[in-house]
């Protein structure tokens, strides 16, 4: 009786999850459908599959350049936020930082700042610095939310490292940078990996700043290119589907390949009690 009930529950969950996958899978299928069959539903399954939408996206749209821009901005944002955030987290976790309390409060509070509030001052900054429509504008703007995130989580990870280890390193004559590089960094490497992955994902997905600070293909990222995907006389649903799938590749790779690290990063915020 119980096992039968459990079986029903198992199947119900699987059916629910299958339904949950439909929006994405439908877009995958659409991206391979011949143009003429797009608006003819049912049948759900096309008579033949085609790569023509991907061909159009790669040869006639802004997507190839946008993929490159997003990759560059994502990697540089992650590198900048980690390069500045990790030493700060190390100091906050192990040294007596002046005004550490207010600083930490400010860092945590700033992860909640709405982008719509900071976008107008940042716009004036970018304009004054002549950075509009460059990668630099996006990297700096994205760092405004990525850096507090890195500091917050890395400080938590580094606090878990026993004090004795840094004291032992100091006794062995290691300076503070040496201690950071040879004790704290290796021990928090898994945590840093998930923080870096999430930072890259946030930068890859970011839309408001990217939409505001870019003007041409030179710096438009994937979400912007997808939002502005051109349709001359009618909406090119197949091409949009193909472009959406391309935009989803890094998130899919991160989720499938690096699931464990990602979950660890996500849960660090909620499960430390």
């Amino acid at each position: 009786m119980t096992s039968r009930r459990a079986l029903v529950a198992d199947v119900a969950v699987l059916v629910f999850l299958a339904l949950y996958a439909v929006p994405f899978l439908w877009q995958v299928l659409t991206s391979f459908k011949p143009e003429a069959e797009l608006l003819r539903v049912p049948p759900l399954w096309p008579t033949t599959l085609t790569l023509s939408h991907y061909e159009v996206v790669f040869t006639q749209s802004a997507m190839p350049r946008a993929l490159l821009n997003s990759l560059g901005v994502g990697v540089l944002t992650t590198a900048l936020a980690c390069a500045l955030g990790v030493p700060a987290a190390f100091a906050l976790a192990t040294l007596r930082v002046p005004a550490a309390g207010p600083l930490m409060l400010g860092v945590v509070a700033s992860t909640a700042f709405p982008q719509i509030a900071t976008v107008s001052p940042l716009y004036l900054v970018m304009r004054a610095l002549g950075l509009r429509d460059t990668w630099a504008a996006l990297v700096l703007a994205d760092a405004s939310f990525a850096l507090p995130f890195v500091i917050w989580l890395m400080t938590r990870f580094m606090r878990e490292i026993p004090r004795e280890l840094s004291e032992a390193a100091a006794l062995d004559g290691a300076g503070r940078w040496r201690t950071l590089l040879s004790v704290h960094l290796p021990l928090t490497a898994p945590g840093l990996a998930s923080v870096a992955l999430l930072t890259f994902l946030f930068a890859w997905n970011e839309f408001l700043f990217a939409f505001t600070f870019t003007a041409t293909e030179a710096s438009r990222t994937v979400p912007v290119a997808l939002a502005l995907f051109p349709g001359v006389f009618e909406v090119p649903w197949g091409d949009i589907a193909a472009a959406s799938i391309l935009a989803s590749i890094p998130p899919v790779l991160i989720v499938v390949g690096l699931q464990r690290w990602l979950v660890r990063g996500l849960l660090a915020g909620a499960l430390t009690e």
Binding site: D10, F24, L201, F207, Q259
Partner: peptide
């Protein structure tokens, strides 16, 4: 759940990890 937990987590994460613009297009 006894079957498909890993796949379930991957699927859930995917929906969360997609860019908002992609979700809008879907």
């Amino acid at each position: 759940q006894r079957v498909g937990r890993r796949a379930a987590l991957a699927l859930l994460l995917l929906a969360w990890a997609l860019p908002g613009v992609v979700t809008a297009r879907l």
